[in-house]
Write a protein that binds this DNA or RNA. Sequence first.
RNA 1: GGCUCCGUAGCUCAGCUGGAUAGAGCAACUGCCUUCUAAGCAGUAGGUCUCUGGUUCGAAUCCAGACGGAGUCACCA
Length: 615
Amino acid sequence: MFFYKTLHEEILRGINESLFAVEGNFDVILNETKKEFEGHVTFVVFPLVKQAGKSPEVIGETLGNWLINNSTIVEKYNVVKGFLNLSLKDSFWLEAFSKIQQKEYFSSRKPTGEKVLVEYSSPNTNKPLHLGHIRNILLGWSVSKILEFEGNEVVTTQVINDRGIAICKSMLAWKKWGEGKTPETTGIKGDHFVGDFYVKFEQEFVKEYTAFSESEEGGKIYLGQKKENQEKTDFFKVFKNTYFNEFSPLGAEARNMLLEWEAGANDTIQLWKQMNGWVYEGFDTTYKTLGVSFDSVYYESETYILGKKVVEEGLVKGVFYRLPDSSVWIDLEDAGMDKKIVLRSDGTSVYITQDIGTAIKRYEDFGAKKMIYTVADEQDYHFKVLFEIAKRLGEPFADGLFHLSYGMVDLPTGKMKSREGTVVDADDLIAEVISEAKLNAGERGELAHMTVEEQENIFYKIGLGAIKFFIIKVQPQKRMIFDPKESVDMQGATGPYIQNAFVIIQSLFRKSDSATQNKTFMLPETLNEGEKTLIQLLMSFPEVISNAAKQYEPSGVANYAYTLAKEFHKYYHETRILSAETASLIDFRLSLSKEVANALQTSLNLLGIEMPDRM
RNA sequence: GGCUCCGUAGCUCAGCUGGAUAGAGCAACUGCCUUCUAAGCAGUAGGUCUCUGGUUCGAAUCCAGACGGAGUCACCA
């Protein structure tokens, strides 16, 4: 609120001189005046009532009067109940505007010297990315951009779950039914290709399981193990996992493959590398389309051993303890959590062990004392435990760990379920929203003169702007309902609405007389309310970004950009810009528009959204 | 059951470091393109901010409890 520093001081002086002596540091809190009242800034006088010994109205009048006579900024005031509404002089707005025009205003802040690592995406390699990943990726990316803007040195990273039974299922299915096909020979994107074999495995497994449940052997098991009054279909719903592990030939083959992988069997490792390679190619395409990138990547197949050494050291320090069956634990009950296993009795590591190891490895690699994990809220407890363990191990980064938790994405029909085929695929969604942008643009005809390539680029920016804004405007901690129909909508509070405000401004500059552009203009003597509102919004830009950085929360930036775009649309409608009364007024309005465009573009860039020049 | 998160208009969401008569968008209805891009603007209608208590001059916002929804409490990840 550095624009209001002088006003703060003046109000404080006013209280001292017209009401009573202020003791200590009294906090003058200013609010923006609500639209339905006259004024720009409101000072609430209720907190002064007791000390002043006067009614709120009298205090407001007294202070307002004092400001009229002594303030360099306040032009008018009015008092409504305990609210002192202040109208500020045009000179104040113009001075503020000249600060906004300085180059640094929309550039990233001076380096803080702080290094921050941001983890996001972190998928499994057995299926393509879906809507849930998109929310994760957009959040993580946006937070990394915002932190970077605030002067932090940011390292983006992910840890890929590239091992385990899931990928073995895909591998087995490909081996059995793949007929040597590849993404190249089929023209299917690599991650989808591998995902299709995962689905194929499940289909074959279900066939096998159905046959089993109808067989004589299955019948015996049902009769022998069923609970009282349990229907056969209900029993076999629950029994599926046990069947996979204890009876299924396919299950046995898949598990055998996992054992071979762990033993380092050559053929299996080759196949594993081959299939994961296809998946990574597919992921890379999607990441590229989404406009995100990673400075580093960790693989669970490499990091899962890392934690073990740490556990051994922690045992010596007494942070962990070993049970007779040789499993290793940590007792977090005094911190309000449970006991947690960190090494299995067979000496292998569990999920959290890897995470401890990975965190330490990352600290060795990058020396970032702040690490942010973008992971869905189903893992809230996991990260609470992880961070507590880091603390007890005395890791230097333990206090800088943050779980950027976000709610799951639901569909209007309910939860996304891969088994029921209701998962929204990332690539499909992106394609859909781009073609919707194309459809809309076709109706408008603004782009008719451009080459196909230029047009495609614009549809892409608009489509991605729509989807990204739609997801990022919702606060992370809230579960969100994703309506595919709404997400491709480009009217109202959407990415394209904001892009449109930007595009209109670009058009103004194209149409304005180039001789008058960027010339130093005479400041107009009077500003209209729309101009003051825009300047006031531009003034709050730094605060919006720094709040987003402090809270690791980009939704405020999205909402800010929308508010600003809305005010601009309104201003544009009410105020003539290119045909203003004087040349200098034209210049001023163009300059103001330009700063609005800067604010919109900078804000949306921090959300990973690009601006088209036309649409 | 313990813990965590969520509950605001028909729907999707803002507002939450306490301030005025709780705001947008969508959907519905009315106007506005011979004037700078109508992906726009203006308007009508829509509310017991889940409920109950507490703190306060003042509570959607803070605290406690209840109700409803979700998640989690694995030698899964």
